[in-house]
Nucleic acid binder design. Structure first.
Lengths: 160, 160
DNA sequence: TATTGTTATACTCTATAACTATA
DNA sequence: TATAGTTATAGAGTATAACAATA
């Protein structure tokens, strides 16, 4: 998924396509806005050789030293098999280590290395800076309202 | 992408993983919320044998009769090659037709059939109903604020 | 030469089934 | 039996290069 959504400049000759019906859906607006956020994130993480998934995994491991792969998969809302290659990559780059858990020799305790924590610091700072720029057009109260609304939507699934 | 994000019930024995750092990012919240919205959309469209992409294409064709494939690809923000299979599927199901454009015999004018318009009506109604349910926890002013903020974020890419 | 639609191809993300080694 | 991690595999969504037909 190269996912760069290249910006086409508006071609002034062709008639514009109406997406009025779709615009009335919050889901459609969320997808379009999220595409922009994700493209920005991808570009921001590229200098660190991280993708959204490797970044997310690294952050969660730094913040939760010793967690198991199955816990991490749960937290990331992905299946265990799909986490394996992500962890493989982070381990190969010596950003994290897989420690055997003495009390349960089936499991691995994941921990970040010093290099991993240093990359974490730089990547989190870069993503923070880019988000500030991306949200520059919104005041703090609006952002707070949006975050709150997103939480309500995220939790809405359990009611269904 | 089966993408059902199965709800795991909280396991009360295991320690909970902290995602405090990630929660501070709007992008992370948007992804988690959008996953819920997309899962709901997928489930809503399943009875109509539509996916998000085929649904989006059908809506845009009904709303913009006669548009070209390249225009539709632009509107959907996907590459032309990826649209071909989507249009193939809609045409095979006789929801749309590809009419040759007399003035430019390279291009196709896309139009919905009666069956396509009927499916459109039913699908749009179903999606609308599900969105109302999904947003039940939010008042109208909040939804309006969120929609406005999403538009600002979507447009923010052009400033970068 | 440039554009429209197409084919072929590859990469990423996701899901399921089945295996191993432990418990 | 059940669980943790793994392997193999398949299906979506996306991107690029190259082609034929037409402009």
């Amino acid at each position: 998924m190269k996912q760069e959504h290249s910006r086409k400049q508006p071609s002034p000759d062709k008639p514009t396509i109406s997406d009025t019906t779709l615009r009335s859906f919050v889901g459609y607006r969320m997808k379009r806005a999220f595409n922009v956020v994700q493209d920005d994130l991808t570009a921001t993480l590229r200098p660190f050789d991280l993708r959204m998934l490797t970044y997310t995994a690294l952050v969660l491991i730094v913040d939760n030293p010793g967690l198991r792969q199955s816990q991490l998969a749960d937290a990331m809302d992905i299946e265990r098999p799909n986490l394996v290659v992500i962890i493989d990559e982070l381990e190969r780059r010596e950003l994290i280590v897989r420690d055997r858990v003495p009390t349960d020799r089936r499991a691995y305790a994941l921990r970040a290395t010093l290099v991993g924590r240093q990359l974490y610091d730089k990547a989190v700072a870069a993503v923070t800076a880019h988000e500030v720029e991306l949200l520059a057009g919104l005041d703090n109260a609006t952002v707070a309202t949006v975050l709150d609304a997103l939480r309500v939507i995220e939790k809405a699934r359990q009611r269904s």
